[in-house]
Design a protein around this nucleic acid. Structure first.
Length: 422
RNA sequence: GUGGGUGUAGCUCAGUGGUAGAGCACUGGAUUGUGGCUCCGGUUGUCGCGGGUUCGAUCCCCGUCACUCACCCCA
């Protein structure tokens, strides 16, 4: 019987990891330049934390959580990080240490969904959470930061969608208006949406069914129901985005499936990389009530999360293979030993070096060096070793020169570093 | 959870009711110890698994599992 990775959970082999490094490095550089600092939290949290923050009737909580019992604890593999971040924020009383906190994370999340392109059971998210700033300027800055990041990564065809759910007051008002509109049309909705009417009527808005969309077409709009302060926040957000020169669309059907959102919601999409149905690169929004709901002070917050696998699919192909190492092809045990000694010195001098110690034929060692794209290869055989020399072969030029072993390290070091600069 | 597609060599894939194939990769040699290009040779398979039909099944039928795409939902 052959073991294989659990369904929906993937290995990332070294030849594929270069893209991940490039993405993660760009993300860190950009968000750190905006003042965000990294947060690391446990993979496992109390189940109740996610139920309370994400919402009892959401799909994530009802059918996608990896939950288990350990002794008497009910625990869950985190399906997202906002809940954990808020838990940490409250637990460490961070709001009494600093008025504004900017946190980011890059970490694996777990959702027991059926996997498909751009959606996996263990998947990686990078995200930011910003606490203590209720103003729409921070919303606009965050959205703009994301566009900068994706532009830097070379992702084309970005589509920024924004919307506002308003605060609890606006939302309750809208819910009534929407239900009033939908009730007489209930029979025209899909079965699924009829169920949604009871639990979460807003979700009917972003149904992909044409049947539902036809009904929803002329439904009242959230934006028309916003209370004064929510409307002011919304208008100011758009002004800031305009000032930043941002292209965006107002999407009145953008509602998102997590209960904690208030006011600003946003998504950035791209169809680059054949993302298919999973073309949302990042989703986020404001969650002003969540810190309080989890037992903290009344601290406003906004955040987003992006799925790294999707970003990777959308990123253009680039050569992320590392530059080839310096290579030793020693013949015989004594030569292998000498190679280890000299290679170590090179590494200490900062030169990436590989020794082929398989004891194979010279031909196969050179073939491998060639496969690795090696430029400088050191051949040490019995006769050279006796005379304290080595052959230094330039595979690109097909030239070989003899070098004293005592001068080898300095010689290679200068060759490799001068190429790095070139 | 529901539906569709696909399972043949390490990878990409042909193929036929009658003993299993190509390209790439890997490897040996041509060149006792010198790569790439070329030429010659070699290794690799329970044709996903189980059952049925058949003299005979990788091929047809049924079931099952895996992968994959889509729905739902989300990143």
């Amino acid at each position: 019987m052959q073991f294989r990775a659990v369904k929906g959970m993937n290995d990332i082999l070294p030849d594929a990891v270069g893209r991940w490094h490039r993405l993660e490095a760009a993300f860190r550089r950009v968000v750190e330049s905006y003042g965000f600092g990294e947060l690391r939290t446990p993979v496992v949290e109390p189940t109740e934390l996610f139920v309370r923050s994400i919402g009892e009737v959401t799909d994530v909580v009802q059918k996608e959580m990896y939950s288990f019992e350990h002794h008497k604890d009910r625990l869950t593999l985190r399906p997202e990080l906002t809940a954990s971040a808020v838990r940490a924020y409250v637990q460490h009383k961070v709001n009494s240490k600093e008025p504004v906190s900017r946190w980011y994370y890059i970490a694996p999340m777990y959702r027991a969904e059926r996997p498909q392109r751009g959606r996996y059971r263990q998947f990686y998210q990078a995200g930011c959470e910003l606490y203590g700033d209720a103003g729409p300027a921070s919303d606009a800055e965050m959205i703009d930061m994301l566009v900068s990041l994706y532009t830097e990564l070379g992702i084309p065809d970005l589509k920024v969608c924004i919307h506002s759910l308003g605060g609890p007051g606006s939302r309750a008002k809208y819910r009534e208006a929407l239900l009033e509109y939908l009730r007489p049309r209930k029979d025209e909705l899909t079965e699924l949406s009829q169920e949604r009417m009871e639990k979460n009527p807003l979700r009917i808005l972003d149904s992909k069914s044409e049947k539902d969309q036809a009904v929803v077409e002329n439904a009242p709009r959230i934006l028309d129901c916003l209370e004064e302060e929510d409307l002011a926040h919304w208008d100011e957000l758009k002004r800031h985005l305009d000032a930043l020169g941002m292209q965006y669309e107002v999407d009145p059907k953008l509602v998102r499936g997590l209960d904690y959102y208030t006011r600003t919601l946003f998504e950035i999409k791209s169809d680059a990389g054949n993302l298919g149905a999973q073309n949302t690169l990042v989703g986020g929004g404001r969650y002003d009530g969540l810190v309080k709901r989890l037992g903290g002070a009344d601290v406003p917050a906004i955040g987003f999360a992006m799925g790294l696998e999707r970003i990777l699919l959308a990123m253009p192909e680039t050569d992320d293979t590392p530059s080839p190492p310096c290579f030793f092809a020693p013949l015989g045990e004594a030569a292998i030993s000498a190679a280890l000694v000299h290679a170590k010195q090179l590494r200490l001098a900062g030169v990436r070096t590989e020794v082929d110690s398989r004891g194979n034929s010279l031909k196969s060692m050179l073939r491998r060096a060639n496969g690795l794209g090696v430029r400088h290869c050191v051949v040490i055989g019995e006769s050279e070793l006796e005379e304290g020399r080595a052959q230094l072969k330039d595979l690109a030029k097909s030239e070989t020169v003899e070098v004293k072993l005592s001068a080898l390290v300095a010689r290679l070091q200068s060759l490799m570093t001068s190429e790095d600069e070139a």
